[in-house]
Design a protein around this nucleic acid. Sequence first.
DNA 1: GACGATACTGTTAGCGCTAACCTTGACGGG
DNA 2: CCCGTCAAGGTTAGCGCTAACAGTATCGTC
Lengths: 326, 326
Amino acid sequence: MADVAERVGVSAITVSRAFKRPELVGPELRQRILDIAQSMGYVPNQAASALASARSMTVAVLIPSMTNMVFVETLAGIHDMLLPRGYRALIGVTHYSPEEEERLIRTYLQFQPDGILLTGTDHTDVTRTYLSALSSPTVHMMELLDEPGSLSVGCSQEEGGRLMTTHLLERGYRRIGFVAVQLDPRTLSRLDGYRHALEEAGLYDEKRVWRLPDPSSIHLGAAMIDRLMAENTDCDAVFFCNDDLAQGALFQCQRRGIRVPEQLAIAGFNDLPASAWTTPTLTTIATPRYAIGRHAAAMLLDLMDGKEPPRRRVDLGLTFIAREST
Amino acid sequence: MADVAERVGVSAITVSRAFKRPELVGPELRQRILDIAQSMGYVPNQAASALASARSMTVAVLIPSMTNMVFVETLAGIHDMLLPRGYRALIGVTHYSPEEEERLIRTYLQFQPDGILLTGTDHTDVTRTYLSALSSPTVHMMELLDEPGSLSVGCSQEEGGRLMTTHLLERGYRRIGFVAVQLDPRTLSRLDGYRHALEEAGLYDEKRVWRLPDPSSIHLGAAMIDRLMAENTDCDAVFFCNDDLAQGALFQCQRRGIRVPEQLAIAGFNDLPASAWTTPTLTTIATPRYAIGRHAAAMLLDLMDGKEPPRRRVDLGLTFIAREST
DNA sequence: GACGATACTGTTAGCGCTAACCTTGACGGG
DNA sequence: CCCGTCAAGGTTAGCGCTAACAGTATCGTC
């Protein structure tokens, strides 16, 4: 920067301002500075800038998984909101583990992020301590928080589970199963919604609930159909905790000649792109994941600007999508 | 850091060493420093460290798309290699645009990355200038470079196109179509492979090639089947440039009652998880994308350590997977 | 003609850390 | 007993930038 300043015949601070506070520099001088900087191959040093200004222009984003489209789309929403404002996202993948999340937080705090976006609400005590000691704001995505003062953008997973179960009941199904995998808090909330809806109808039966800690996959969904058949289940409908699983189930039903929905109805969650194209098409619930990313980032931008966001808890709702599989 | 040093009763550099060069500090003193730092909530400032040491411990990674599983899995390979060594990835999404890539490079150079991972080989001249002026190493992923001195890890897309086309010829198909979307260099290489194989067999016909700039999707694959039918194509097989498209085509064939492969054979590229489960299952070519990420990152680590990597051009090959759709 | 407002540009100091060099004391060999 | 060696820790200076404050010229206004 000093070299550029010398070549232009100004002081270093003017070069700095030409880049960071353009309105403070005369237009033609500014252009000359930028041109000469460009020709010299000068690029500002972000580390030095961060050190001097105490603003890293960085937001730490922690998501549970990269291979799950849901979170990738959330990330896209975050990116689209942050990049135009000059912020960069530092992405961490927790693999659904609060301990891994804690480790990542510790690492990313070294970058002095100006804001933090977390997925979900289950964090270790140490994570909570770190965050509360921090001056940078933290917004929670996906689930909604009720604690006063906390910031969250998401939708009610429990309501989603309830919605789908109610739909199945309305369609006349009475022996509705639930397949929960991964067993992260969002899955368990959907299971809660399912259970409450069935309990209210007097139809809840623990033996129709399958809980598996394995990660979700099409393969596992297909395997679950085989297992249900082997166990001679009496289910007339199965609500899978997400679309990957449900798609795998549909594929396997087709292979085995199980008629869906006549013999067995199948429902999913999240509305992945393929779910509109399977045979039969999959009844599911669309989650506003891209919008969640955008809103969470927007809320964070407000806070980083020192402004109070319009709302501290934003419920973006769910969209029920009835298709052929139920 | 100074506060921690004072509490422990040592100088700042000893605290610094306790974190960054543990072998230079006595074991029990080191433990005391770490304990006290922890209790005080001290976290090293990465910006200051980067400024003082001229090492950002950061690698810039540019990929074309985040919603395409292929690149997400590459990213996973990179992460798994870099994180244990203390490096962080700065992820940029170019949306298949060399101009966007140039913009991102400019932005990320501000972070003084210790290394750079790029996807593909088509870059703007400005990008090339930036990179050659840089002391940090750059590794190209996916495609292979022949220029001496250049670093690349990938597989031959052209060979992939050729492999699949040869397979279709062997199965007796004679009027083989090709659907190319996105039209990025990798897609076009596959198209080249397809064309060369057909030309050698004397069966290439331009009218059986569809080129669309649109992004790939299941929806588009399904739409292409409708279009082929409307255009009354004489194709007995269609080679789609990737699995998303091919899956959409399979779904639509099923809907329309087109028997695959008897009436129309369908082939894809990449081997996505669902391709083993569709009805019929999809013939495709598996690309070693996770391994590409790992190898590229490993090569970069060598270079950042000042070591010469074992090889500067690594071809990880392709795996042909014959399934029911052909 | 004095004055304040406005628009630019400059000076000084320091952000938090680490490279490079330096000091100290313990130890062992000849 | 001297000297070299080594382990452990300290001193000094500076990485490249920007916040805060300090000019300086220009202009309009009363």
